[in-house]
Amino acid sequence: MSSVKVELHQKDVDKIKEIAKEYNNDPEALINVLHSTQDHFGYLPAEIQEIVAEETNVSIAKVYGVVTFYSFFTMTPKGRYPISICTGTACYVRGAETVLEEFKRQLGIEVGETSENGKYSINCLRCVGACGLAPVVMVGDKTYGRVSPDGVSDIIAEYEDAE
């Protein structure tokens, strides 16, 4: 998994320490700490994982193992409008794959990547609990149901003028 090099400021380091402390620096709470940390920073570059490892008393190799195992975690920053396509069973059988292909084609990026202007990123989800709306796509917090490949350009158009 490729990673972006970042320079962390002391306040970032303090923030991670604060998050780890909320979970009592418990090694068992590693996944929770990573969740909160990613919520705050948007992604988990190597430098951040290093501090999480130290604060939770887990080896850095293990932290990296967890980050690369769960598709939710990412080492590259997400776009300002992160696009998530549900590929859970219900969405999959109703054509999520073709919707995903269309997003990839129109934005010219792969799953887990971010567009060069930093605006869009594509990720796959496993079931958001809205199977009745399958296939489901989320952009940020906004949900789109019964999306077809033909509807992809309309969704993207909604964000084209936004910053």
């Binding site: 998994m1 990673s3 190597a46 994982q49 887990v58 080896s59 850095i60 190799a61 293990k62 932290v63 990296y64 193992g65 690369t68 195992f69």
Partner: peptide, 20 residues
Amino acid sequence: VGALSGINRGFEAVVAPAFE
């Protein structure tokens, strides 16, 4: 020692040091 861990999943799953 914590040098090795299982990383990735599926066919890409392998045991490696942090950040490969």
